[in-house]
C-alpha cells in the first residue's frame, strides 16, 4: 500500500490482509487434508507387487488357465483354429469397442490370448467357454465376450483388458 492509495481509514489495507490471510489458510487447509486423502491410495508395498512369470507349456489348444497377478485373475487361453477364425472374421461394425484380433495378441502368437479376467462392467470374473460367442460370459450382469475377449453384448462398455506382457521363450510369459 503506497502513499497514493491511503484512504484515511485503512480499509484497503485491511481488505488486503483479510484476503491474503484467508488465501493462506485455504492453501494450508488443503495441504493438511491431502495426507488424509492420499493415505487411502495404494501403499508402497502394494505398488511393489510387480510381475508374474507363467509357464504355458502345459496348456493344450482349447484350454485356458487362470493365474493371479496383482491380486487379479489373468486368463491365458490357447485358442483353437476355429476360435481364432471366429475372432478374425468379425465385422468391425458389430463391435461396441472396435479392435481387430491382431491388436489383441502378440505378433505371430495368434493362438495365445492373455487378458485380465475382470469384466469391464463391474469387475466380476467372467466364465470361460461360455456365452453366445463362446468366449466369456459374465454371470453378474450378463455381458458376452467373444474368443478375442471383446465385448459383444451386454452392459460392459469395453473389451477385456490385455495386460502388459511378453514372451520370454516360446513356453514362458512374463505378465507386468
Amino acid at each position: 500500500m503506497s502513499a497514493a492509495s491511503h484512504g484515511g481509514d485503512g480499509g484497503e489495507r485491511r481488505d488486503f490482509l483479510v484476503i491474503t490471510a484467508g488465501a493462506f489458510v485455504g492453501v494450508g487447509a488443503v495441504g493438511l487434508v491431502w495426507p488424509f486423502v492420499d493415505q487411502m491410495n495404494p501403499s508402497a508395498d502394494v505398488l511393489a507387487l510387480s510381475s508374474t512369470e507363467v509357464d504355458i507349456s502345459g496348456i493344450e489348444p482349447g484350454q485356458s488357465v487362470t493365474i493371479s497377478w496383482r491380486g487379479k485373475p489373468v486368463f491365458v487361453r490357447r485358442r483353437t483354429e476355429a476360435e481364432i477364425e471366429a475372432a478374425v472374421s468379425v465385422d468391425m461394425d458389430d463391435l461396441p469397442d472396435p479392435q481387430s484380433d491382431l491388436e489383441r495378441h502378440k505378433d505371430g502368437k495368434a493362438e495365445w490370448l492373455v487378458v485380465l479376467g475382470i469384466c469391464t462392467h463391474l469387475g466380476c470374473v467372467p466364465l470361460g467357454f461360455a456365452g453366445e460367442y463362446d468366449g466369456w460370459f459374465c454371470p453378474c450382469h450378463g455381458s458376452h465376450y467373444d474368443t478375442s475377449g471383446r465385448i459383444r453384448k451386454g452392459p460392459a462398455p469395453a473389451n477385456l483388458e490385455v495386460p502388459e506382457y511378453e514372451f520370454l521363450t516360446d513356453t514362458q510369459i512374463k505378465i507386468g
Binding site: M40, P42, S43
Partner: peptide, 17 residues
Amino acid sequence: VTWLWGGFAVDNPTLNR
C-alpha cells in the same frame, strides 16, 4: 476406485478401511 480399494483389487486395505 483405486483410491477406495487402496490397491488394484479389493484386498486387505479395503477390508481395514
